[in-house]
Structure formats: C-alpha cells, structure tokens
Write a protein that binds this DNA or RNA. Structure first.
Lengths: 148, 148
DNA sequence: ACTAAATAGTTAAACAATTGAACTATTTCG
DNA sequence: CGAAATAGTTCAATTGTTTAACTATTTAGT
C-alpha cells in the first residue's frame, strides 16, 4: 500500500470519528428529551411522509427489532403513530403526529443554525466540494455493502 | 438564511448520518468481539502510548463514568491495563497489553483495507481536499464547543 | 501550615440502542 | 394447496451513556 494512501486512511479514521462524536454532542443540546438517533428517525419519516420498519432498518443499517424498540419510544412520546395502510396487512406505516411535526420543524430550525455556524467558516466552493465527495462516499459504501 | 446554505445543511445532515451508520456497520464486521467504540479507544491509546480517563472523556466528548465502564470491559478482555504512573497519585494510566497491541495491529490492517477500498474510488486530489475540509470542521466544532 | 476548593477516578441506578433467536401473522409462489 | 418468504414483535443480554453521590488526592488562598 502506498505511503500516502495510508496517511489518508489514518487521517480519515481520526477525523471522521472526532467530527461525529463532537457533532452529536453539540446537536444533543438542541434536542429536548429526544435522542440523537430518534431525531434522525423523525427526520427521515418526515421527509418521506411515511415509511415502514423494514425501510428504516435498511436505511439505518440495524436489525428490525432495534427499530421496533425505537418506534415504541417515539410512539410513547407522542411523536409518531403506527397505522395500517395498503393491501398488505403485514405492513405497518409510520407517520409523524401533529406534535411530532411541530417539534421537528422547530428543532430543524435550531439544528440548522448550528450547522450553519459551522459551515459559514468555510467558503461556498469548499462546502460544495466537501458535500459532493461525501455523497460519493455514501454511494460507494452502499455498493460495498451490497457486494458483501 | 440563504436558500443554498439551507440545501447544504440538508444534504450534510443526511449524508453524514448515512456514511457514519454504514461505515460503522461495515467496520463492525472486522472487529471480532470488540465494539466500534472500543476499537477507537484502543486506537487512541495505542497512538498516544498511554493516556488517562479524563483525556479520553474529553476527546470522546462523554462523561468520565462512561470511560470507566468502557475501560472496565477492555481490561476484562485483556486488551488494556491500568497502572499508577507519575507523581499525581489520583491519576491512572491506561496502556495496551501485548495482546491489545497485537490485536490492534492486525485489525488496523483489515480496517485499512476497507477504507482503502472506499478511497481508491476517488482521485488523490479529491481525497486530499475532502480530508482537509473535514479536519477544518473538526477544529471548528472544537471551537464551538469551547464557546458554549 | 491549614483548611477549602478543585481534580481524578469509581460506583450505582436508570435509560437508550443494539443484536440474535424465537415467535405470529400474512403473503407469495411452485 | 402447502411451503417458503416477508413484516413486524417479543425477550434476554450486552454496550454506551448520564447523573449524582462518593473516595482519594492535590492545589491554593489566607
């Protein structure tokens, strides 16, 4: 393996871990009694309008039983609701309640301000390039997962 | 807030979450009975030679009691050991055992191959630029945390 | 020099996220 | 039709985390 690639890997492992941990710690301050993971679940359902447990398990790369546990907590908190929907009676649809929508919209505002504070220290071009590469990595990772 | 910034934020939140989750899921396959977080702790101690609970708690942005729990498990697994060291008798030093070092070196090899597979789909320049920006973000996040 | 405050680390109780295996209910398909 | 696949749940166990209370030690103010 080339020396330079090895250094890239080293730097990538260190920095990605740090940014995730610290980013999550900062975000947590804005999320009342909802956890970081729960926030992303609410966010995902909101953007999709509705979704299923199986879909969430795929997207979040966890077991379906982990999704059951999380959605149970979100239902208890009154943020989402389960519903029957469609022909297939095995499928349970997940949607945000009114309360969930209101909470998410308010919270998105705070999270946006946080990310914005971070991003505006960089140039427009740098952000664009960074996110583009990040999106490429997401696709590459998905391919790697499928080829396994 | 500008429209374009808002889209950046939206894209960033989605993609960073995805890459973290999927990256962690892929890495987990290479880490026998050591968890993802434990791997990063071992990695950090190895790179430092030795370190303390307080330092780990700072770096990982968690409470010291979380570090106590994690290091307990790593000691039970025979990967690290606690030791007295230095003048300050409150301080407990954490170092890798021989077993821990051997395990880490072997595992780093596997993880490197994984990250390398991912990275070689990008150009040298693109990786360099990506990591540079990532490192800037790490510094920005640290500053944001301090100014809070 | 003495005491109060700060620091390093642990413990214990509680909760969230996760896995894996076993399970129910429903749908698909040979 | 009947077997296999699929959607989701339940349960037990492990891990990571927080908060508060605690011990032991060091630092600093007066």
């Amino acid at each position: 393996m080339e020396r330079s690639i090895q250094q890239f890997i080293e730097r990538y492992l260190s920095v990605s871990f740090l940014v995730n941990k610290r980013g999550a710690a900062l975000m947590k301050c804005e999320l009342d009694d909802v956890t970081h993971d729960q926030y992303y679940v609410l966010r995902y359902i909101y953007k999709r309008g509705m979704c299923t447990s199986t879909e969430l398990a795929d997207v979040f790369a966890v077991n379906k039983s982990a999704i059951t546990a999380m959605t149970n907590r979100l239902v208890e908190k009154g943020m989402i609701e389960r519903g029957k929907d469609g022909d297939d009676r095995r499928v349970i649809s997940l949607t945000l309640t009114e309360k969930g929508k209101i909470w998410l919209i308010e919270t998105e505002q705070k999270v946006y301000e946080l990310v914005q504070t971070m991003m505006t220290k960089l140039s427009y071009e740098e952000i664009e390039q960074f996110i583009q590469t990040y999106e490429k990595l997401a696709i590459i990772l998905q391919e790697m997962e499928e080829n396994k």
